[in-house]
Every structure is written in C-alpha cells, then in structure tokens.
Design a protein around this nucleic acid. Structure first.
Length: 935
DNA sequence: CATGGTTGGG
C-alpha cells in the first residue's frame, strides 16, 4: 500500500477505471460496434504515451469513424465477449517508441501481447506487465528494453510463449527463480540476455517441464554441473535447443542433454567450449534432424553411433579438431547440409558422399582429405548447390572434357585445391553461379572469355594466385550486374587494363603484368568502387581525372607501377598508396577533401614542394604518413603535431631543413598503447585490407597485423638542424626513432630513458656531442642502437645489454671510450669477461644480425597486441568470406614471419609462447604449411 | 507455430 501511494497517478487511474466498470454494460453492441468503450479509452490513453513516428497506429483514434477499436491495426477482440484479447504491435517495419502506459492493465483479458522489435530507448520492462494475468503469449524481444528483467513476469502463470531476447546483453537476469513459476511455458527465448549471475539457470530450465523450444544463445551462461539424475525432471517435450555462444563445457552440457528422452530434434551447441570426444550417447537422440557442434574444441573421430539415421538432415562439425576418416555409416542419406570444414579429417570422403542424393551444401574446407574427384562422385548429387572443397591440398579432379554435371551450383569454392593446369571447362554448364573461387589452384591457362557471361548472378570471382596469362578482352557489355568482388591478383595477365565492372565494390588486379595507361577506367561512372588495387603492374601515364568521381573509394592502391605526372583530383576515404611510381609536382590540394584518410603512402616518387601545413589540420584520423624518398624541402610544419592518431611518420630521404618541432609530444598515439582511430578502423573490417611498408632497420617490410603496434618516426637523411627536443622523449610507446644522417647537434636528452619501448634507435651521422646519457642503458628493448659518427665523448654506460649491441654502434666518435669499444677509458682496468662481452670487436655473426631485425621487445609486444586484436576481429571474419580470406592471407604471412623469428630467437619465452601460438593456430585455422617446431 | 532487427540466427 505504501508503494501504491508513492505513485498517486496509479491511484487516480484505478479509481477512474473502477467508476467506468460499474457504470457500463460490458457485453452487447451498439450500432454494430463490438469494441468495449472502456477498453477503447484505455487503448487511446496507452497510445498517448507511445511515439508512433511511422503511423503504425493511425487507425487508432477517437473520431466517430474510428469507434470500432476491434478493427484497429494490431487489435483482436474475442468473438463472444468482445474483450480485446490480442495486441500485436511488433515494430518490424515501423518501430514504436515512447513509454508503455499502465493503461495497458485495463485490457484485462489480454492473452497475446507482442511488443517486439520496437524501440523503447533503454527503458526498463514495466513491472505491471506481470499483472496481465491472462497472458499466454508475451514477446518483448529486441525492443531496446534494458536492465533487470522484472521478476513480476513470474506471475504470468498461463504464459506459454515468452520472448525476451535482447541486443548485446542489454537485459539481464541475475536470478531466474521467477522463471520457474511459469509452468505452462512451451517456448522460451532469452537469447543475448546476460545471465552471467544466474547460476540456477539449469535447475530453472529443468522445472519447465512443458518446454518445447529453448533459445539461450549468447547469454554468458555460467558453467554449472548438471543436476544429479535423481533430481532430474527434465521436459520430455523439448525438441529445439539453442545454446550457441556460451562457453559451456562438455561436462556441463552433454550429461544434461542426454537425459532428455529421444525427442530432441534440433541441437545448436556452436561456439562453446565443448572439449574431448563427441559422446557416443549422441546416438540415443533418435529424432535428431539438426546438429551443430561447430566452433568448439572437440577431438577424436566422429562416433559411429551418429551413423546412418534417417532423420539427420543438417550436420555442422566445423572448426573443431576432429580426426580420422569420415565413415560411410555416418553419412546419412537424408543429409542436406554437411559441414566438416576446419578439422583434421583425412582419407577419402568423397565416394560415400556420392550417395547422399539429397545433399545441397557440402563444406570440407581445410582438412586433409585425399582424393581424386571424378564425375562418378557427383552422379547422384542433383540437388547440390554449394561445394566448398577449399584447402584440401590432397584433393584433385579428373573430369572428362565434356562433362555435364547433374547439378547447378551457386557457390564453387576450390581455393587451394589442385584444379589446374587447365581451367575447369565443366564450369561452363553452371549458369546460376554467384560465387566462384578457384584461387591458388594451380591453373596455368588463358582466361576463358565465356566466364564473363556465364551467370547473370555472379557476385564474387576470385582467380588470384594462379598462372593465368594473356590479354583480357573487353567484355564489359556482358558483365553480371551483380559483381561485388573481382580478384585477379597474382597472375600473369598482360596487355592493357580491361574495362572493369562499374558496380563492383572490390577490384584487385594487383601483381600482374598489365601495362600502359589506365584511361579506360573512366569509361563508366564507377561510383560503387570501394577498393581498387592495381599495384605491382607495369602501368604508366598520368592518373585519369575520374578518380575524383569515385565517391565511395576507400582504398586506392597504385603502388609499384610507373605512373607519372601530377597527382590531382583524388577522393579517397581511408587508404592511399601511391608509393614507388614517378609522380611529380606537389601534394595535391584535392587531398584536403579527403579528411578521413588513415593511410597515406607517397614514398619513392619525385614529389616536391613544401610539406603542406594544412595536412596537420585536415587528416584528423591519420595513422600512417610516409613521404619517404621524394624531393620535399622546407621545414616540418608544427601543425603536423595535431595528428594525434599518427603511428608512423616517415619523411626520410628528402631535403627537409630546419629544426624538429618541439610539439611532437602531441602525437598521442605514440604515447598510448592502443590507438583509438586504428582500433576503430580495425573493428570496422577496413583494417583487414590494410598493410603498409615500413623501413625497419634498413629493411623494407610489409606490416599487416603488427602495424597496429608500430610506432615509428623516421626523419633520416635530411638537412635537419638543432637538437633533439626533449619533448620527443615523452612518446613512450615509440618503437623506432631514426634521426640519422642530418645535421643535428647538441647533447642527447637525459630523458631518453623514458622511451622504454624503443627497439630501434639510430642517431648516427649527426653532430651530437657530450656523453651518452646513462639512461640509454635502461632501454632494455633496444635491438639496434647506432650512435656512430657523432662527437660523443666520455665513457659508454657499462651495461651488458648495450655492449652486446656491438662496437659499430659507437664507432666514429673519437672521444668515446669503454666497452664494447676497444678503447679503455683513462683509469679503467681492462677487465673483460669473455662470457659477457662476447665478440668485442664489433663483428657480429650473421645469425645474430638477423635476430635483431625485429627485437624481442617488439616481438613480445606484438604478442600482447595479437591477443587483444585478434579476438576482436576474428568473430566477424569467420562468417564473411571475403574478410575471412583476406584475413587468412594476412594471418599466414604474419605467422610465417613469427616462425622465422622464433626459429632464430634465443629467448626462453620461446617454448611457452610457441605452444600458445600453435594451440591458437590449430584451433582456428587448421591449415597447411605449419612449420616444424624447434626443440 | 512464432527468424527479424539499429544484431547472428552460426
């Protein structure tokens, strides 16, 4: 009662309602109107507090012609009593907002209430909904409610259907006791409700003995031990169970699962932490038609008990560590979908698959199957639509030249299989294709012209990493209007650049032998193009004017060609790579409009002029800026210090003069561990296309994954004067600093010891004087130090790490003394300990030199970055083929690099880390070419 | 029965 008085408006409403009820005959129609006046009144008041931007409730009103509320949209009245029994106000196409008024309580006979897919702006679910005691159906899913689910819903004892799924854990329930009172519940959906604290979830579910359908995906369910069989009282009616994405273990899930009688027909357990073998008991689930155990850590073979059951039509075991052959017995004739991708299966699976005459989708991607596939394998598979045999290096094909397959495929994915040497002619019969990937498939052939006109639905075409040669003819009039991606990269295509589909978004023609000008790019208005990579070809001439019209272009990569002339009229959103061409003139002012650029590489051209001051104010998201090896002059504008996301600044090999700006400490990305701008580009997926070449310790290398950890300032080989501003030493995450080959002078700042992440420090060939600050010996991540050819004096700090860097780091400073130089300081004894000093002559053995390419410190920090970065992006990649492939490529290249690194590393960390990396690698990308681990 | 959204339906 006290609570009641805290809400005086409730009192008023109840009094009003009471008055009406007594004054009114509830049954009987007036002028053929069935609608009960008090219910109409309540609905109008209910509507008053809603926001109906889309006019979903425009039929609700108090005008004379709208009197019949039983005809209002979403309203259903009972045929006999005329009471409103159903309100279907789901907002799939026209979401409602605002507030859910307590006037709803006046619709006391309501059995069905659907408010799903609306937009209630983080409001709480009203407690009073628990007072609509006649409700049998309640759906509040995905309506932007947030907070704790009110336990009052537990009063709805007639409820059979309850949908409360939420967006990304906006709703929580810390204790599910309220749920156990809903004895009539047949359907329950709490997907994405945060149930971290609901340790009683399993007990609660077990009390719902009428339950038929249960969705608990992405709920953060805590792992609990299943109840002991004596207390177990599970529903016999459950037939559909979805526990996707909960990190549940085998010991939690399986014992529980197998206590249900044989009625379960749909089991989704993907993305959990199921480990060990698939239990034989799975064979007791006699009604099983859908089983997904994907994305777990299951090992061992497919149990025979799963074998040949007439009901199974969908089996997904992808992304586990399953081994062995796939026995014929397991392959049920009723299977329509069979996904075994990313496991370690071997043997010949394909013969038995040939009898699965209902098969529509077959995924065997990334296994170790060994087989020669012939026409007879496919004889019965007339329903097949999707065929993915990618990354089974042991699979090859033997089809007769005129083979006419019994199926019409929509997806053909044969990446990394032995398809070649000739282009598979049977594809010519497949006229419904929308995705074709025959990349890296050993094809040595010319490109078949008919492919361009094969299917009007072709979306994605990837023939990269083969040996295609010859000229591509102009088939622009035959292009599929659906083209999204075309990847012809890493082949030997020659001749002039073909006319490209105007509606595609990703076009990669890089690493071929296309030659000559690219003026025919401008034949169309290519406003859909988002990614254009023509790098590593023999293209030349000036850039055509049309680039400014490519209004959606995020990536433009023209690097490593022979383009010349001025760069003009560009309109790029994210990444611009023009390095290694012969561009002349100044940085174009049109770049001022490209304010969202994150990567600019103009290195190795013949560009000139002053570095524009507007750059610092324009590119607020810039991460990478290289003007290396051009003919820029003038001083470094201090405006550049506004580039707070900048990680790589490379102005080396120019004619830049003046002093180093003191404000460099404003480059905050070089202070912070994680760069917001970079991380956001990473999570948007853009990053998976990005790479950048960095000169790292005299070697050019392509940084892809690890780029996000790189922090580099390279101003070497210019005409800079003055001293090193102490401000630069506040860039504490800086990994590389190269100021060599300038005319810098003064003493080295003592605060240099703050640069604890520094792996590479080159100050050689300047006029620095004074002593080497003792703090340099604190830089224990340093892999390369070069202070040679200055006027430094005094004693080299005696520190084991510094001395192992070699004498060459200090030579050319006549007044320096002490180890590792051969020159003893005045008054010092010669006290060499060969074990510590090693080769004091300054000569390093080549192996050691290689080791320092990337020092241990950078390598460790990469691991840290990897752990954080990888997981964030992996989930989105797994399901998007394009990104997945791109990422996979990057992954492999970075892994190769790591293995090289590890092989030559002398650190103890090696073993532990190696295990860790291997477990990751085998879990997610069980793939070929895993280098042997060193003992 | 109840799978669509400003997000996955694996």
């Amino acid at each position: 009662m006290i609570k009641f008085f805290q809400h005086p408006h409730l009192l008023v409403i109840v009094l009003l309602l009471g008055l009406r009820t007594t004054c009114e005959q509830s049954i009987g129609t007036k002028d053929g109107i069935r609608c009960l006046e008090k219910e109409r009144e309540a609905l109008l008041r209910f509507k008053d507090e809603l926001i109906d931007d889309y006019g979903q409730l425009s039929s609700w009103g108090n005008q004379k012609d709208k009197e019949e509320c039983c005809k209002w949209s979403g309203v259903l009245c009972d045929n006999l009593t005329n009471h409103i029994i159903q309100l279907d106000l789901h907002g799939a196409s026209a979401p409602l907002g605002g507030n859910i008024s307590v006037w709803l309580l006046e619709i006391q006979h309501l059995k069905y209430l659907d408010l799903s897919l609306n937009s209630f702006n983080h409001r709480r679910i009203p407690q009073f909904i628990g007072s609509l005691g006649k409700l049998q159906y309640l759906d509040l899913s995905d309506s932007w409610f947030s907070g704790e689910i009110p336990h009052h819903l537990g009063n709805l004892s007639e409820l059979q259907f309850l949908g409360l799924s939420a967006y990304a854990g906006m709703l929580t329930s810390t204790n599910l006791d309220w749920l156990s009172r809903l004895h009539s519940l047949r359907y329950l959906r709490l997907s994405s409700v945060n149930l971290t604290m609901a340790t009683n979830w399993l007990q609660t579910i077990n009390k719902l003995i009428q339950l038929e359908v249960l969705y608990l995906s992405d709920c953060h369910l805590p792992t609990v031990l299943p109840p002991s069989p004596s207390t177990f009282n599970a529903s016999n009616s459950l037939y559909k169970l979805d526990l996707f994405g909960n990190d549940l273990s085998s010991s939690c899930v399986f014992p529980w699962l197998f206590n249900f009688s044989s009625g379960l027909s749909y089991i989704e357990l993907g993305s959990n932490k199921l480990q060990g073998p698939i239990p034989d008991d799975i064979g007791n689930l006699l009604s099983l038609s859908y089983l997904s155990l994907s994305q777990n850590q299951l090992e061992g073979e497919i149990p025979m008990a799963l074998g040949n059951r007439s009901s199974l039509s969908y089996l997904d075991l992808t992304n586990n560590q399953l081994t062995g052959t796939v026995p014929d017995l397991v392959l049920s004739f009723s299977l329509k979908n069979l996904y075994l991708d990313h496991n370690m299966f071997n043997g010949t699976v394909t013969q038995s698959i040939g009898s699965l005459y209902k098969l529509e989708c077959l995924g065997l991607h990334s296994n170790h199957f060994d087989d020669i596939i012939t026409e007879s394998h496919f004889f019965n598979l007339s329903q097949l639509r999707i065929l993915d045999l990618s990354y089974n290096p042991g699979i090859s094909f033997d089809f007769s030249l005129g083979w006419n397959p019994p199926f019409q495929l929509t997806e053909v994915l044969l990446r990394g299989c032995k398809v070649g040497p000739h282009f598979p002619t049977w594809l010519r019969t497949q006229t419904r294709l929308y995705e074709l990937d025959i990349s890296n498939a050993g094809i040595l052939d010319t490109f078949p012209d008919w492919l361009w006109e094969l299917s009007s639905n072709l979306d994605d075409l990837n023939v990269s990493h083969n040996n295609f040669h010859g000229v591509l003819h102009d088939f622009s009039s035959k292009f599929s209007t659906n083209f999204r991606t075309i990847d012809l990269s890493f082949n030997h295509f020659s001749g002039s650049l073909p006319i490209l589909p105007p509606n595609a978004s990703l076009l990669d023609l890089s690493s071929n032998k296309f030659a000559g000008p690219i003026t025919n790019l401008c034949n169309e208005t290519n406003s859909s193009w988002s990614y254009l990579d023509l790098s590593n070809n023999l293209l030349s001439g000036q850039l055509p004017d049309c680039f400014a019209n490519l209004s959606n272009l995020r990536f433009l990569k023209l690097a490593h060609n022979n383009f010349s002339g001025n760069i003009h009229s560009l309109n790029i959103r994210f990444s611009l790579h023009l390095q290694n061409n012969s561009f002349t003139g100044e940085i174009p002012t049109s770049l001022r409009n490209c304010t969202s650029l994150a990567f600019i590489d103009l290195s190795r051209n013949k560009l000139t002029g002053k570095i524009p001051t507007w750059m610092g104010n324009t590119f607020t998201s810039l991460v990478f800026l290289s003007l290396r090896s051009n003919e820029f002059f003038g001083s470094i504008p201090s405006n550049l210090c506004h580039l707070s996301h900048l990680q790589v600044l490379d102005f080396s090999l120019n004619k830049i003069s003046g002093a180093i700006p003191k404000c460099l400490n404003n480059l905050t990305a070089m202070i912070e561990v994680d760069n917001e701008s970079y991380v956001s580009s990473f999570s948007s997926g853009l990053q998976s296309y990005e790479s950048a070449s960095v000169i790292w310790k005299s070697n050019e290398r392509e940084y892809i994954n690890t780029l996000r950890l790189m922090r580099l300032i390279d101003l070497s080989s210019n005409n800079l004067v003055g001293d090193i501003p102490a401000e630069i030493t506040s860039l504490v995450t800086l990994v590389g600093l190269n100021l060599s080959r300038n005319n810098l002078s003064g003493i080295l700042p003592a605060s240099i010891e703050q640069l604890r992440s520094l792996d590479f420090l080159d100050l050689s060939r300047n006029n620095f004087s004074g002593g080497i600050p003792a703090g340099v010996s604190q830089l224990d991540q340093l892999g390369v130090l070069d202070l040679s050819y200055n006027n430094l004096s005094g004693k080299i700090p005696q520190n084991i790490h510094l001395q192992t860097l070699g004498a060459s780091a200090f030579e050319g400073n006549p007044d320096l003394c002490g180890l590792p130089l051969n020159k003893t300081c005045p008054g010092d004894e010669i006290a060499q300990d060969p074990k510590i000093i090693g080769n004091a002559s300054g000569m390093k053995d080549p192996k050691e030199e290689e080791d320092k390419l990337i020092s241990d410190g950078f390598y460790i920090s990469m691991v840290v970055g990897f752990v954080f970065g990888f997981w964030g992006v992996c989930g989105t990649l797994v399901f998007n083929n394009l990104w997945r492939i791109a990422f996979f490529k990057l992954w492999n290249s970075s892994m190769d690099w790591l293995y090289v690194k590890i092989a030559i590393s002398k650190i103890r960390l090696k073993e532990a880390f190696h295990k860790f990396m291997n477990s990751l690698r085998s879990r997610f990308f069980v793939s070929e070419n895993v280098p042997k681990q060193e003992k």
